[in-house]
Design a protein around this nucleic acid. Structure first.
Length: 425
RNA sequence: GGAGAGGUAGCGAAGUGGCCGUACCGCGCCCGACUCGAAAUCGGGUUACGGACUAAUAAUCCGUACGUGGGUUCGAAUCCCACCCUCUCCGCCA
């Protein structure tokens, strides 16, 4: 959420800044109208409340002195009625203004490139080289099904489309990937947490999924509970409403959780395989940073995500998201895309973002600088480190051999009892 | 699910219609005194948000907040209603 005071004083700059997103711009005139109305109501109501407070004190005095206060009480009662009306009006206006603020995205950072679609995302760097396979590479679902590890049909029977059952080596490989990624994160100073996979509306609002993107979430029927679409939600909200000490920054957490996404609006996209599922595992890295250090921290965080792919020996590239492709809460995002020979494409496997104080303001996460009188909002960042399901896809497609077997990355073998290769039985 | 107890400042905890959010008391923290320095001791200070006035996120004045949301009242931490959370016991359960 943008700072109300900032929006108040910089309507033009807000409009200008949001143009970079190439989306419908928010109606700042509407905001100005609501804000003026709100302040006018506050002034009127507060003047009356002050009058009522002194009047009520007067009543107490009169009563103690044994004098009649009925006339004053009647007058105060009338003021009370008017205050009630004004407060009700104020409540409506405030809710509208709050709703306006909650639905306006973060302003892209100046270093976020211009552009309106993913075509415009500049490639910043590559790591490794595309593997040259001396045969026609297969897609991961062919490999996975042929080796008896991935079963999409049975998942369809159990639940529906966009789910998968992993058997044997596939289940083990997924577990190995998760454990490996958590160990990498620990090495980089992240504290591992296991948060709830179900959160309430306040948490979803804190990180920005609500109120605008309810249709992307699975909601528990009849309750104020939602399945998390990413560990970002529970982990960022760990410190909601708290004031951290300056020397606690940066605080860094990692979490391996299932993620649940309705994928509304992506009909027909990636309908086969593990790329786009309603449920998948992901290791998420979350950082609570000092405002002066958050851009530095974004580079650090992105490096931590890259390290995982480097150790797995998987070729990837890093791109910067342009304004039009940027997520709602982010001001700057790097995507890491891993090379998939079967698909003959780079596919997103991590997304690393700096949210500045956008989430911190929503979730009320602050820190107090040494010697400072007031606390201030800190900056939150997060990035996948990495998406486990997609990493499994990458391991399969990059490790495939002409005979359909899969050679495993060295780094993963200790997690699989030394196993070097997945072969058909 | 049933019964009971409780939610007040960073922590513990008092207050049960106006003198209590200008919140008893204790701890912690900050400043000062004492000391070569420290501990102990003594003195002072220490909630947040909003409005007005401002160059000011300074001072001052005003308003709001005692789990959350309503209600009663001239006036609510205090009385009433609903909900949430924590703890204890019972039931059920991995």
């Amino acid at each position: 959420m943008l700072d109300l005071k900032f929006v108040q004083k910089n309507l033009g700059a807000v409009t200008e800044g949001l143009k970079k997103r190439c989306k419908t711009e928010p109606d700042v005139a509407e905001f100005a109208r609501l804000d003026e109305a709100r302040i006018a109501l506050i002034r009127e109501a507060e003047a009356l409340k002050a009058e009522r407070n002194t009047g009520s004190a007067e009543v107490a005095k009169l009563k103690r002195a044994g004098q009649d206060a009925s006339e004053l009480m009647a007058r105060m009662s009338a003021i009370g009625d008017r205050v009630k009306e004004l407060d009700a009006e104020l409540g409506v206006i405030e809710a509208q203004e709050q709703d306006w603020l909650l639905k306006v995205p973060n302003i892209p950072h100046e270093s976020t490139p211009d552009g309106c679609s993913e075509e415009d995302n500049p490639v910043l760097r590559h790591w490794g080289t595309k593997p040259e396979l001396p045969f026609a590479p297969k897609e991961h679902w062919e490999l996975g099904q042929a080796l008896g590890g991935l079963d999409f049909e049975r998942a369809g029977k159990l639940t529906g489309s966009r789910f998968c059952v992993s058997f044997g080596w596939a289940a083990k490989l997924e577990r190995a990937l998760g454990a490996f990624m958590l160990d990498c994160a620990a090495e980089n100073g992240y504290t591992e947490v296991i948060p709830p996979y179900i959160v309430n509306k306040a948490s979803m609002t804190g990180t920005g999924q609500l109120p605008k993107f309810a249709e992307d979430l699975f909601k528990i029927e009849g309750q104020d509970y939602y399945l998390i679409p990413t560990a970002e939600v529970p982990v960022t909200n760990l410190h909601a409403g708290e004031v951290l000490e300056e020397d606690q920054l940066p605080t860094a957490y990692c979490a391996l959780t299932p993620c649940f996404r309705s994928e509304a609006g992506s009909y027909g996209k990636d309908t086969k395989g593990l790329i786009r599922q309603h449920q998948f595992h992901k290791v998420e890295l979350v950082r609570f940073s000092h405002p002066e250090k958050s851009f530095e921290d974004l580079e650090l965080l992105t490096g931590h995500a890259e390290m995982v792919l480097q150790r797995l020996g998987l070729h990837y590239r890093v791109i910067a998201l342009c304004g039009g492709d940027l997520g709602f809460s982010s001001c700057k995002t790097y995507d890491i895309e891993v090379w998939l020979p079967g698909q003959d494409k780079y596919r997103e496997i991590s997304s690393c973002s700096n949210f500045l104080d956008f989430q911190a303001r929503r979730a009320n996460i602050r820190f107090k600088a040494k010697g400072a009188k007031k606390s201030e909002f800190l900056h939150t960042l997060n990035g996948s480190g990495l998406a486990v399901g997609r990493a499994l896809v990458a391991v399969l497609e990059n490790g495939q051999q002409a005979d359909g077997s899969i050679v495993l990355p060295q780094a993963l073998r200790p997690y699989l009892g030394g196993l070097e290769k997945i072969e058909a039985k």
